[in-house]
């Protein structure tokens, strides 16, 4: 009952959900962290203290500033080619954020359209879409991505494509299931009784009603997408050197792990922090958007 009263006060259900979300301290904090990563990616050239591509062989494997032999101009030390790790980590966030956001948006759009069509039109459309979804779900994610990258060759666009090919499946399933429920609602029949077209009903009547689960599942998936990109780059199939990516930086430092732990560890910590923040934020979104979890 309290939830209904709250919804009535707020401008819309979405606004009420966002108010709920804002009350969740952990989720709000996590969102701030994600936003900081986004800012870091956007303003990398202004934030980075050094040129991420400039190598200085005299600084090979230089330790972080607080350790013996470090200097504050290179706060997190240098990698095997004498490049500033902090600057490379900052630039590396561009790749992670770009791929995370791009794949999420494209996959959510494609998945939502396919899910709406399958769930509303049913029949042959549903059979075709659902079978493609089943086939893609039966592939192990990383193996499929490795195979696609090996065929298409490296490059930012190809990474996005390789990940989208599998990633649209999840929003599609969610949207299809929600659409199946929504298409039986009386407001859909009312819209049909007033001469609305199928396209209109799918995009203007049903889509706004399935937006909440779509947003929740998409934000959850963004964390997985970032890990997938890091994995591909770690395996050398993702972003190509010298462009810095957290995954390839972890790979580069592997052989020096005993003597120079910072080369691999720091980009690894970045992956951990960003993915954790995204997960906590999307957890908060789900709690706020799923009425069954309302207290």
């Amino acid at each position: 009952m309290e939830g209904a009263a709250r919804a009535a006060r707020a401008d819309s259900i979405l606004a009420a959900n966002l108010q709920d979300f804002a009350r969740n301290r952990v989720a709000l904090g996590a969102t701030v962290v994600v936003a900081l990563f986004a800012l870091m990616a956007a303003f990398a050239p202004w934030i980075a203290p050094q040129d991420p591509y400039a190598s200085d062989l005299f600084r090979r494997l230089q330790p972080p500033a607080w350790m013996e032999g470090g200097e504050w101009a290179y706060p997190l030390g240098c990698d095997a080619l004498g490049r500033d790790i902090l600057s490379r980590v900052i630039y590396g966030s561009r790749v992670s954020m770009f791929i995370g956001v791009a794949v999420m948006l494209i996959a959510a759009t494609v998945g939502a359209l396919a899910g709406l069509a399958a769930g509303y039109l049913r029949g042959a459309t549903d059979v075709v879409v659902s079978r493609i979804v089943d086939i893609l779900l039966s592939f192990p994610y990383l193996i499929l991505a490795i195979g696609l990258m090996a065929t298409m060759g490296p490059g930012l666009g190809n990474i996005v494509l390789a990940l989208v090919i599998k990633e649209w499946v999840l929003p599609c399933r969610i949207v299809r299931a929600e659409t199946l429920a929504a298409r039986e609602m009386e407001y859909v029949e009312a819209a049909r009784a007033l001469g609305a077209s199928s396209r209109h009903i799918m995009l203007r009547e049903i889509l706004p009603n399935v937006l909440s689960p779509l947003i929740v599942v998409s934000t959850f998936r963004m964390a997985t997408i970032i890990i997938m990109e890091a994995s591909l780059s770690f395996l050398g199939l993702g972003v190509q050197p010298p462009v810095p990516s957290w995954g390839s930086m972890v790979a580069d430092g592997r052989q020096f792990l005993i003597g120079a732990w910072w080369v691999s560890t720091l980009p690894g910590v970045m992956i951990l922090v960003l993915v954790l923040a995204i997960n906590l934020a999307s957890q908060g979104l789900r709690d706020a958007f799923d009425p069954r979890l309302r207290r």
Partner: peptide, 15 residues
């Protein structure tokens, strides 16, 4: 034009 029985369910809650 046809109006449905229950206005609460016949109006789209999200719009």
């Amino acid at each position: 034009a046809m109006t449905m029985q229950d206005a609460l369910t016949a109006l789209n809650p999200a719009l």
